[in-house]
Design a protein around this nucleic acid. Sequence first.
DNA 1: GCCAACGTTGGC
DNA 2: GCCAACGTTGGC
Length: 155
Amino acid sequence: MAYWLMKSEPDCFSIDDLATRPNKTEKWDGVRNYQVRNMFRDQFKKGDQAFFYHSSCEVPGVVGLMKVVSNAYPDPTQFDPKADHYDPKSTPENPRWLLVDVQFQRKLKNPVTLAQLREHESGKLKGLLVLAPGSRLSVTPVKPEHWDFILSLAG
DNA sequence: GCCAACGTTGGC
DNA sequence: GCCAACGTTGGC
């Protein structure tokens, strides 16, 4: 089982949005980055755990826990001309973009802010990819020891 | 809203 | 295949 950190802008889709979805489950769609696509395809497994991270907002940080409840499969929004992330070069016979289904687990009592994570970036969280300079990937792996430490920061 | 850091695109 | 232009991300 692997651990992940997945970013979303709360104005667009927040942890509370996920918690109120039917079955508390949602397609993590709209990803149009090849590195993330490859992680979905090659490394994501049903049963993995993920942090829900709020980005581009007042207080960026880890706000909750999710479970990955599917393996990767084609993102239907790539075929929809009306969708924001429509990709005219992708076909159902040869889909370019994948997604996974995620299910709400719980919110953290105390969200762990980016500022808190940064306090430990040369210590306990050394190597955490979301802290890497210039890191813009919306999905990044989290080592088990980093996962546990971040949870301990949440109290 | 600014801007730095990247990724992608497309002409050549 | 190079690289300039452009678009996007995301913290501040």
